[in-house]
């Protein structure tokens, strides 16, 4: 039978992870409990509850970054003025997670450790160049989110290690950003495809930096540096359609979607391209200062 220990500090959580065998850290439990029900583990697990650990909670502005405790639930991210100011893309993604009850339980760190290709927070964190901080009895280490996630369900998290913070580095202002999630319904949906994009511009309104990441179209969130490079120098409000089409083609050629119950690979591939095209050809060209993203879900 599964055992459960609630930890009250990071030190205690790390100690419990070491003392017991077959332990797993658990925050909101919205993924791990569902997985354990679907396929009961071969050996009984001991779950170490970390949602009550103070060091893993909260959103703080620090000199170099915005620090988000790994056990911060999505509901808090969705409601945070700090997130709205520094990482609106992540806020839109947080609002697209599950439904209110899920968002009250599910945490940002959990979403990363689950490492689902469909994880809603992944594309925004990739384009924001976010990092994770991991703690173990041996100390702490940091790495980019895109390095942390290795593939479906696979991360660099070692046994005995806990993901404790997500760090969104301060960066030059973003002119426009958008998160979009296409699912089979508008809530409680697993993404068929998702998209996070942002543009930075120079003084002349030309794209100085474009970043895109796509969810559910590869083993992890997919970035397409080639497409990003193709758009450099284009007018952000009205990029050259030929450049847009080249970027769309690059995306369609790069993503590696699969067929599953929710959608086919060919649809996902086209969708990834369409979501980028829509982002780059905004129907009602919003002002360059409109820094808030717009989440929409199919």
């Amino acid at each position: 039978m599964t055992r459960f220990h609630a930890a009250h500090s990071l030190t205690e959580a790390l100690a419990l992870l070491h003392e017991e065998t077959d332990t797993r850290p658990m925050a909101g439990g919205t993924d791990i409990l569902v997985r354990m029900r679907r396929s009961p583990p071969a050996v009984p697990l001991t779950l170490i509850g970390i949602e009550g650990v103070p060091e893993l909670q909260g959103i703080r502005e620090e000199p170099s970054w915005l620090s988000i405790g790994a056990a911060t639930p999505f509901a808090a991210i969705a409601a945070s003025p700090l997130i709205a100011a520094h990482a609106p893309l992540l806020q839109d993604a947080a609002r697209a997670v599950g439904a209110p009850a899920i968002r009250n339980m599910a945490t940002l760190g959990g979403n990363l450790c689950t490492a689902s290709p469909a994880g809603d927070s992944l594309p925004p964190l990739y384009v924001l160049d976010a990092e994770v901080e991991l703690a173990s009895k041996a100390g702490r280490r940091r790495m980019a989110v895109s390095d942390f996630i290795l593939g479906p369900g696979e991360t660099q998290l070692e046994p005995g290690e806990i993901l404790c913070r997500v760090l969104v580095p301060h960066a030059p202002p973003i002119a426009r950003c958008q998160f979009e999630k296409v699912g089979r319904r508008r809530s409680l949906a697993i993404a068929v495809a998702s998209f996070a994009g942002l543009l930075r511009v120079d003084g002349a309104g030309r794209i100085a930096g474009a970043r895109f990441a796509f969810g559910s179209v590869g083993p992890a969130a997919v970035t397409v540096p080639e497409a990003e490079a193709l758009l450099r120098g284009q007018l952000a409000v009205q990029p050259d359609p030929a450049a847009v089409e080249r970027a769309v083609l690059a995306v369609c050629a790069t993503v590696r979607p699969i067929d599953d119950l929710r959608a086919s690979a060919s649809y996902r591939r086209a969708l990834a391209g369409n979501l980028l095209r829509r982002f780059l050809s905004p129907p009602s060209s919003p002002g360059l200062n409109a820094a808030t993203g717009h989440a929409s879900h199919g």
């Binding site: 508008r186 809530s187 409680l188």
Partner: peptide
């Protein structure tokens, strides 16, 4: 193919 209400979507209030 579906085993639960995650893999068998039904409309929610927002739909």
């Amino acid at each position: 193919l579906a085993t639960d209400f995650a893999s068998y979507p039904m409309p929610g209030a927002l739909d």
